[in-house]
Design a protein around this nucleic acid. Structure first.
Lengths: 321, 321
DNA sequence: CCCCATATACTCACAATGAGTATAAGTACC
DNA sequence: GGTACTTATACTCATTGTGAGTATATGGGG
């Protein structure tokens, strides 16, 4: 990041590296520096204009160097380049462009390096986990705070607009919860001053409610990047077989289901989930059994590559679409 | 673009501006400069680090300035930053980063400005239009050329890989054509040396077949950006009501259907299309009639905003998903 | 008035989906 | 060795969605 004082523009790469361990989505964060010393920070690296041929190779390179991780699946997420990305004091004036990437890995234990560590995604976005029904946090804290935000708008028209937006993004007033709208929800909460970054960036007063601001903060606009990543992967598992990047080569159907549910933040009907992945031809049995299930042993399955040729959209399918 | 000689990195914005006119998807191109003087070029502008607060505002600004167009729907597409993006002679050494955006407008006639003009999208990507069944170009030219490309691989394993990739992206050998895989198809054709840009960038010999290289070339890697845009919009119309950005406020169902088909590059069943958009609540009748249909007058419909609250994925739905 | 074109209503078979019941086969504990 | 508990797996059923088609309505042009 450290912008060259001669140039008002600097460009860096950020990585949202996700894994799923014991039914919890995890993200790799490093210790911040300077202004953000105490906030969790996404791994980042400079873009060396004379370096690797592709941006993705650059990313893989410094992730390997700094964390010892060999990335598997990598895709570009979004380029963040607005002014005021939480830089108001740190780098006033300079423009920082961040090209964010999503990467999926199998968490293998403690990362080798530096100050990198795995943390729970839902510590940062606690309103996103609906696996056990609507979270009390949403019911007791988020919704009332949104109601206050709606009422505080100037004029009836502005109030109507805020209400509509809140209803759509948070599934209120008859709308259904759409698990994919992670970024929209974060941005609404940011705009409503309900996350710490908004308090920080706009110098708002700390709200009195101990549950507010919501979730755990990250440095700069990194939580926005995490939200972008979670939304992207939630959408993608429906039509591309990306979940398997997070699983060992052989797995039980329940393991597969738990990983999907962890990402999607919602539960699924066991028998229907099973029917779906089998009938689609997404997986195939290996014949061998896993007996440490706590119940009847389960067959071990593997991803069935041929499905790529057979199906236009080989994904896992979640309820409500 | 014009890279600062002191800095080996320059950053610009590119816009893929789409409209649909008379059942043909159209793209706004400008005349190239320098190396690309004769190739169609996407509108682009520099990123002024001290300029507008957001990248999107910057984009809207210079599009307005240079073409007189007021953009409606805008979304970021992708950031292209690999070396060798068709710059091998023009700007050797310097790294150029291009943040590409997709914009949708209603074509209003000749653009006001500069050297901007509308051209048919399918002139650049002729293998993408399947509205009248599989295009002869695909059957007679693309497929045989892909076969040659597969055979020319070194070793059985490499041949198998090429065949699998060709079958998936082009819907051969039992696979279905997936209209969304526009970028994958362009990249395969580029890699196989079947588009002019590949010939240009890699100094390949011009193929003897008059149908090759395929389609009309664009400057630099702009055709890749167009392919990215077309793939994105094809995916998006299924679950977000973006088509209406391309239509007048009131339209007949056939007009709506034709615009969708033009984008998707495939035909739809008229009665089922109608049933879908009406039952979803995506449109509502206005009561008035359009009589210049050539047959029985059709009712004029409008987009029904309430659907955003009612449906998680308010889109038009295409066959085969 | 007849032909032609488009609009609109309705039918039907079949596939996909959401929800649930029933049964199988292990482990833990007494 | 039996019983409770846990997970796996098979199967049913109602409802909805999808692909394909037939039938009828209503305009314009000769």
């Amino acid at each position: 990041m450290s912008p060259d004082p001669a140039s008002p523009l600097s460009v860096g790469l950020n990585a949202v590296i996700l894994a799923v361990t014991e039914e919890r989505p995890r993200i790799l964060v490093v210790e911040g520096t300077g202004e953000s010393a105490h906030a969790d920070t996404l791994p980042f690296g400079p873009l060396d204009p004379r370096g690797d041929r592709t941006l993705e190779l650059t990313l893989r390179g410094w992730v390997r160097e700094r964390t010892g991780l060999e990335l598997g699946y990598v895709e570009q997420l979004y380029t963040f380049g607005d002014r005021d990305r939480g830089f108001h004091r740190a780098t006033s004036g300079a423009r920082v462009l961040s090209i964010a990437y999503l990467a999926l890995v199998r968490e293998t234990g403690t990362p080798e390096a530096d100050n990198a560590q795995w943390k729970d995604v839902y510590d940062f976005l606690p309103w996103e986990d609906w696996r056990r029904g609507d979270p009390p946090l949403v019911r007791n804290t988020v919704v009332p705070a949104l109601e206050r935000w709606i009422r505080s708008a100037d004029g009836a028209e502005a109030k109507r607009e805020r209400r509509l937006r809140a209803e759509i993004t948070f599934g209120l007033g008859g709308s259904d919860w759409d698990s994919d709208r992670v970024l929209e929800r974060y941005e609404l909460l940011y705009g409503a001053g309900l996350v710490h970054e908004a308090v920080r960036d706009r110098g708002l007063p700390e709200p009195p409610d101990p549950e507010l601001p919501l979730g755990r903060a990250m440095a700069l606009d990194h939580r926005r990047m995490l939200a972008t990543a979670l939304g992207r992967i939630r959408g993608k598992i429906r039509y591309r077989p990306v979940v398997f990047e997070l699983l060992p080569p052989r797995f039980t159907l329940l393991q597969l289901q738990r990983v999907v549910e962890a990402l999607a933040g919602m539960g699924t009907h066991k028998q229907n989930f099973r029917r779906l992945v089998e009938r689609q031809g997404l997986v195939e049995g290996t014949g061998s059994l896993e007996s440490r299930t706590g119940g009847r042993p389960a067959e071990l399955f593997r991803f069935r590559k041929e499905v790529l040729r057979e199906r236009r959209t080989p994904g896992v399918g979640l309820p409500g679409r």
